[in-house]
Nucleic acid binder design. Structure first.
Length: 577
RNA sequence: GGACGCGUAGCUCAGCUGGAUAGAGUACCUGGCUACGAACCAGGCGGUCGCAGGUUCGACUCCUGCCGCGUCCGCCA
């Protein structure tokens, strides 16, 4: 169900009938003012420009051929050639009733599902996740769920940072701790501390750095003792990540992990192939690809190192290997990678090289979706007062505590179990929504206050709208809903239009990888509901049974849409709050 | 030096393939609860869309130049 698409097809047909080429864009969009109708088609003006004809006359022809019988009440021609479409409220009501009855609330299921590999979260297992890791994890998860809701096949890939030089230092330190009879779980309870201790020893303790470097080599060449220590470290660190995922209601599972280490055995093959095809060449002892496609003005190609002069591999090698694996083994039609914007150049290079080398066939989409860094209130890279970072776990716990305080204040009677459950959903929801509702690829400012706000355009606002609806159902004692929604009041019409835009929004989220569009949509839906709630009483005196049944059914559809939309964002709803 | 991203209300941010009078939240100011839940609603205040040109019926959106901020650019990831 996509009104815009239906109208676009109709307008296109009319354009062809009026003598315009078939590929003319009808440019149908929502009208931004009530007097301009519900939707408008602006394509005629652009087409008239190309043909050098009078736009107004052309638009008249298009309008005359435009068949919106049953769909629109009125089609008006305005200004230089705007076509304003006023939809029929009867038609809208009919669509609503169809959608209300549909398992996917009007979002059509993909006829031919595509296989989409989504690479997100990818924490560095050497350290604990901090607030900066929030974005990749929850944006990626929202896009994943949107894809699945539309009917695509998603393969999650958690490209965890579990390999590389820093692990030599960490396993050397762990080895000493275990020798002192410490238990691994205890020693690694605080990863930040553990990392700091190891780093200090690496920098200051005589002989330790050499041991660390030797351990890396041993690890990467398959030494059993080092592998065992590494595995212990990784297991515990993954458990830390899983705790965060659980708190965040993120769908990543242990089986989704495909860490850097998993590509280790393929790296030399990747290099061999690149060398054999002469895509990579040796330069200053290292193996590099000179990328002419990204040359600067002086014609100097961009340089991409795929193997260090000492023979070591880099993340470039790993990411090329990942391309090969994902398109070859996983049969991806599209690969989406969420990382911060600093890696934009890197992934551009990876794509060019991977395509040249045939690791990434032409038909496979490759989208690197970057996002900006988290900044402090001063606009500089985010740090705490002591210069560290805020642990993600701390932020989430704080959010739950604040939510709990607020709920107790608003509802002193609440029992402890309900309080804990609701506080969790509200607090975590608020943090996620604050982040997900931003679309910035540029940097953004971290702010406790807005992050933990429960008023205005926030998750609790949406959850509150949902709870209010449930409250009405409880009061009405209804579990069955009429299939006869009527669209009469302006608030009802506004809601109808909004409810029927879900598919359009989901598609935009999927194609642009921008969950903030869904956040905006849900906020607008909830906001329209709040206005409806004030203006259109349901259970009050003097409301006819027919109107009551219609409005209850409308509420039911709104609740379903809110719940489903929030579910895609990984935010939970509750009947009471 | 080169490349990429960003500059919109006091603050935090939306603004879809160029469309009609640039929108929310927050802050501040007015109103609205013996209640279908005020975590709300109705209204007000607040803008030279960084600056200057260009393209055209029309530019926050596209192009050029400049200013400011951020990031990246041969052996970290």
């Amino acid at each position: 169900m996509n009104i815009k698409q239906i109208l676009a097809e109709k307008v296109s047909a009319a354009m062809v009938a009026a003598g315009l080429p078939e590929d003319t864009n009808p440019a149908v969009s929502l009208s931004n003012r009530p007097q301009f109708g519900d939707y408008q088609a602006n394509g005629v003006m652009g087409a008239a420009k190309k043909l050098k004809t009078n736009p107004r006359e052309l638009a008249t022809k298009v309008v005359n051929s435009l068949d919106l019988e049953g769909i629109a009440d009125k089609v008006e021609l305005a200004g230089p050639g705007f076509i304003n479409i006023h939809l029929s409220q009867t038609w809208l009501a009919a669509q609503l009733n169809t959608v209300a009855d549909d398992n996917h609330i009007g979002v059509a299921q993909r006829a031919k599902p595509t296989t989409v590999v989504v690479d997100y979260s990818a924490p560095n297992l050497a350290k604990e996740m901090h607030v900066g890791h929030l974005r990749s994890t929850i944006i990626g998860d929202a896009v994943v769920r949107a894809l699945e809701f539309r009917g695509d096949k998603v393969i999650r890939q958690n490209h965890m940072g579990d390999w590389g030089t820093q692990f030599g230092m960490l396993i050397a330190h762990l080895s000493d701790k275990l020798a002192d009879n410490e238990v691994a779980e205890t020693a690694l309870a605080d990863l930040e501390n553990f990392y700091r201790e190891a780093k200090i020893r690496f920098d200051e303790e005589e002989g330790f750095a050499d041991r660390a470097r030797a351990d890396v080599v041993k690890l990467q060449s398959g030494d059993a003792q080092c592998a065992k220590l590494w595995q212990q470290f990784i297991d515990i660190s993954i458990t830390h990540s899983e705790e965060i995922y659980n708190k965040l209601n993120v769908s990543l599972k242990r089986s989704d992990i495909m860490g850097e280490s998993a590509y280790n055995d393929d790296l030399s093959t990747v290099i061999d192939e690149l060398m054999a095809s002469e895509i990579a060449v040796e330069d200053q002892g290292a193996k590099v690809v000179f990328i002419d496609e990204m040359a600067n003005k002086d014609g100097e190609p961009s340089v991409f190192i795929v193997q260090k002069s000492g023979g070591g591999f880099l993340y470039a090698t790993t990411d090329l290997s990942a391309c090969r694996y994902r398109s070859g083994k996983l049969k991806a039609d599209r690969i989406i990678i969420f990382t911060d914007a600093r890696q934009a150049l890197h992934f551009k290079q990876v794509e060019i090289v991977a395509r040249k080398a045939g690791f990434l066939p032409e038909h496979v989409g490759y989208d690197h979706c970057p996002f900006g860094m988290m900044m402090g209130n001063d606009g500089k890279p985010f740090k705490t007062r002591t210069g560290g970072t805020i642990k993600l776990a701390e932020l989430l716990d704080e959010a739950v505590v604040r939510a709990s305080d607020l709920i107790k204040e608003k509802n002193p009677e609440i029992n402890t179990d309900d309080l804990a459950d609701i506080a969790k959903k509200v607090g975590i929801g608020a943090v996620k929504f604050a982040d997900l509702s931003k679309n910035r690829t540029s940097d953004y400012i971290f702010n406790w206050k807005t992050m933990l706000s429960f008023e205005g355009a926030t998750a609790p606002y949406l959850q509150y709208a949902y709870s209010r609806i449930q409250s009405i159902f409880t009061k009405a004692g209804t579990t069955q809903f009429s299939e006869n929604i009527q669209v009469i009041e302006p608030q009802e019409k506004a809601l109808a239009l909004k409810l029927l835009q879900l598919e359009d929004v989901i598609d935009a989220v999927i194609s642009e990888c921008t969950p903030n569009l869904l956040c905006n949509y849900l906020y607008e839906l909830a906001s329209l509901y709040m206005s409806f709630y004030e203006a259109c009483p349901i259970l009050k005196e003097g409301i006819s049974d027919e109107v009551k049944a219609s409005r209850l059914a409308l509420c039911h559809l709104i609740a379903k849409t809110l719940k489903q939309g929030l579910d895609i964002l990984g935010i939970e709803v509750m009947d009471r709050m």
